[in-house]
Design a binder for these strands. Sequence first.
DNA 1: TTTCGCCTCAACCCATTGGTGGAGTCCAGA
DNA 2: TCTGGACTCCACCAATGGGTTGAGGCGAAA
Lengths: 216, 216
Amino acid sequence: MTQESIRVLVVEDHHVVRQGLVALLNVVDGLEVVGEAADGVEAIAQFRKCQPAITLIDLRLPRLSGVDVIQRIRMETPNARFIVLTTYDGDEDIYRALQAGARAYLLKGMTTDELIATIRTVHAGKSYIPPAIAQRLAERMGTEELTPREFDVLEQIVHGKSNKEIATELEISEATVKTHINSLLGKLGVTDRTQAATAALQRGIVTLESLRKPKP
Amino acid sequence: MTQESIRVLVVEDHHVVRQGLVALLNVVDGLEVVGEAADGVEAIAQFRKCQPAITLIDLRLPRLSGVDVIQRIRMETPNARFIVLTTYDGDEDIYRALQAGARAYLLKGMTTDELIATIRTVHAGKSYIPPAIAQRLAERMGTEELTPREFDVLEQIVHGKSNKEIATELEISEATVKTHINSLLGKLGVTDRTQAATAALQRGIVTLESLRKPKP
DNA sequence: TTTCGCCTCAACCCATTGGTGGAGTCCAGA
DNA sequence: TCTGGACTCCACCAATGGGTTGAGGCGAAA
């Protein structure tokens, strides 16, 4: 029978990668790339215009992050289906993307077959998380969430600030900073600030990019 | 006149990206993708077989790193021309790639025009480093090299070890560890071990990946 | 050979950090 | 209203970390 093609929107800022995806997908029977976007804002516009069945989306995007895009689109189109396609950015991003409603999470190193199979799976209404990713998620489940304030302090730690500097920056006393640190060390399962910093980077709670440019 | 096409070898482990590059390049007049490789070992084999004029190569490769590939190929073919094409991996990698003989360094976010222009530039025997990268290189120039032992200690610091643990691990006294730390803090231009750890990660002296799996 | 950088270690000091226990406020939810 | 979590702060103590100076051994290069 003559089946409708699955309409796919590709959201990816790296031009080369986007081209690669489009090139790969367009030769596949039963798939049709109906739109492309290079940043988050464009992604939302393209989604509204193209009404794709599946949106393939990178998490790192200019202007609006992938997670934000997923959240906003799902506000107006709750049954929109997303496949996150990214290089490994840390457990935090995976977690938040799935929370936001992504149905699958693939690494850019995957094979074409894996990608296509996942698109069909998600289109059929199911989810797909690779075993390696699933394992990380499971590990993360056991851990407690950081509070907003603990996150603030952790961020400062990663930026190399001393307790005194953190206290000044956040306008609280040094004693309070120590309290937060003590608490977040426990939650992260580490014993000192240096381990906390590397753990934060590993998990993607803070990114290396954010270190390069001073915060706004 | 009928010009010979520039023979290009594409070395990239991410399948999607590799496809994207090949798709982009093959539609360009005057370029010809004569080979592809998905890891370092394959890259060397393909180079010998295809004898490309230009090798487009990622630095992060399975089995053999991009830097190693460049070094080895240049042993036997000193005038081989390489364009490094990678996501930003830290200043250290850029530096080492250029040391190894790469002629250009491009980020995956570049435009098609930029890529093609760079291929032609390098083929013409010239080099091309984007301004943003050049600036980082310049900054790096002012800094002193870490000694091997300092590097060992820095690595341990990034792995969250205490001075005592580092001393045990490296089989030296804690006093010596402190000496090395004091020295490397100065060279990195930072004031404590946490800053040293994040600086090491930023510059790519140590990678986040190496943190996940315990060292061999 | 002398020099220089690297690696090693020691002794000393003080600043920072992390651990513990306690305490008050505020706010949201049961 | 009561409970609990988050945030704030204090005091005290022990451990760790970083700064300083000085010094011996070793190997490579001048």
